[in-house]
């Protein structure tokens, strides 16, 4: 009986403190004010594991067809480069202003540490899932609502080569005719 009472008390205390935090307004939601290290870690781990699990069983098609680079390139330039940048560009309003910040997809993974990237198949899977479904409470939209899987795989294929492209190659691949 004593244990039950103690548990109940703890639960009530927990709920009360959550409500206090919620309604007091002490949580800073400003995008120009970074999370504390603890909150950052909690969110990052939650996100990484969620994506890993959700993307687990996605089958990666052949991504070597040059045609994919043309479709994916045009789409990337139009829909993604404002946030995720392009060869020769190091910042944009979006890349600086958003929090969490959109990763620079024009540089290779080695240049941004802090989370694992896995092998090629794994990152293709994860990228496909993220592009299709987006990431909650971040600037990353779910493109699957308006684009079919074929278009999304083309972008995955393009992103895979993006860090190796020169600004000139990027221009030719992404220009519309």
């Amino acid at each position: 009986m004593k244990i039950v009472k103690l548990l109940l008390l703890l639960i009530v205390l927990g709920i009360v403190s959550v409500i206090t935090v919620m309604y007091s307004g002490i949580v800073d939601v400003a995008a120009d004010e970074p999370h504390s290290e603890l909150v950052y870690w909690l969110l990052e781990e939650t996100r990484e594991n969620s994506i890993k699990k959700a993307a687990e069983s996605i089958e990666v098609p052949d991504l070597s067809d040059p045609e994919l680079l043309l479709t994916g390139g045009a789409d990337y330039e139009y829909m993604c480069s404002s946030c995720h940048l392009k060869p020769g560009q190091i910042e944009s309003d979006m890349s600086l202003g958003l929090y969490p910040a959109p990763p620079n997809l024009a540089v290779s993974d080695e240049s941004h540490k802090g989370h694992e990237h896995g092998d090629e198949m794994q990152s293709a899977r994860k990228n496909f899932w993220v592009i299709k479904h987006g990431i909650k409470a971040s600037g990353m939209p779910a493109w699957g609502k308006t684009h079919d899987d074929q278009r999304i795989w083309a972008m995955v294929a393009f992103i895979k080569r993006l860090p190796t492209l020169t600004p000139e190659q990027y221009q030719v691949l992404t220009a519309v005719e």
């Binding site: 070597s64 080569r161 190659q169 030719v172 691949l173 005719e177």
Partner: peptide, 13 residues
Amino acid sequence: PVAVAMMKKCMKQ
């Protein structure tokens, strides 16, 4: 594939 894709784009253009 990057070179092939660039050729395709420029030939089409």
